[in-house]
Computed example of a mutant assay.
Amino acid sequence: MILEEESERATSMLIGKVVRRVMRHRDGEVVIEFEDGSRFFADSDSPLELSITLAE
Rank of each mutant, 00 (worst) to 15 (best):
M1T: 15
M1P: 15
M1C: 12
L3D: 04
L3S: 12
L3M: 12
L3C: 06
L3R: 15
E4Q: 14
E4G: 13
E4P: 10
E5D: 10
E5L: 13
E5M: 14
E6M: 14
E6N: 11
E6A: 15
S7R: 02
S7F: 01
R9I: 11
R9F: 11
R9A: 03
A10G: 01
A10Q: 09
A10V: 14
T11D: 14
S12H: 10
S12Q: 05
S12W: 10
S12I: 13
S12C: 07
M13S: 02
M13F: 06
L14P: 02
L14R: 07
L14G: 00
I15L: 09
G16R: 03
G16H: 07
G16E: 00
K17I: 10
K17Y: 07
K17G: 06
V18W: 04
V18L: 09
V19C: 05
V19S: 00
V19E: 03
V19A: 04
R20P: 08
R20L: 05
R20D: 02
R20Q: 08
R21W: 01
R21P: 05
V22K: 02
V22D: 00
V22P: 00
M23G: 02
M23Q: 08
R24T: 04
R24Y: 05
R24K: 10
R24A: 02
H25G: 09
H25T: 12
R26D: 07
R26I: 09
R26A: 01
R26G: 01
R26N: 00
D27G: 12
G28L: 02
G28S: 07
E29L: 11
E29K: 11
V30C: 06
V30N: 11
V30T: 11
V30Y: 03
V31T: 09
V31A: 08
V31Q: 06
I32P: 03
I32F: 03
I32C: 03
E33W: 00
F34D: 03
F34L: 07
E35R: 12
E35C: 10
D36C: 08
D36H: 07
D36V: 11
D36T: 06
D36I: 08
D36K: 00
G37Q: 03
R39T: 13
R39M: 01
R39Y: 10
F40T: 06
F40Q: 07
F41G: 11
F41W: 03
F41Y: 15
A42M: 13
A42K: 02
D43Q: 10
D43K: 08
S44T: 12
S44P: 01
D45I: 15
S46P: 14
S46M: 14
S46E: 05
P47G: 04
P47F: 04
P47I: 04
L48G: 03
L48T: 01
L48N: 09
L48V: 12
L48I: 05
E49K: 13
E49S: 14
E49W: 00
E49L: 14
E49N: 11
L50C: 13
L50H: 02
S51Q: 13
S51N: 15
S51E: 10
I52S: 05
I52H: 04
I52R: 09
I52C: 04
I52Q: 11
I52D: 08
I52W: 00
T53K: 12
L54C: 06
L54Q: 11
L54A: 13
L54Y: 12
A55G: 11
A55T: 13
E56Y: 10
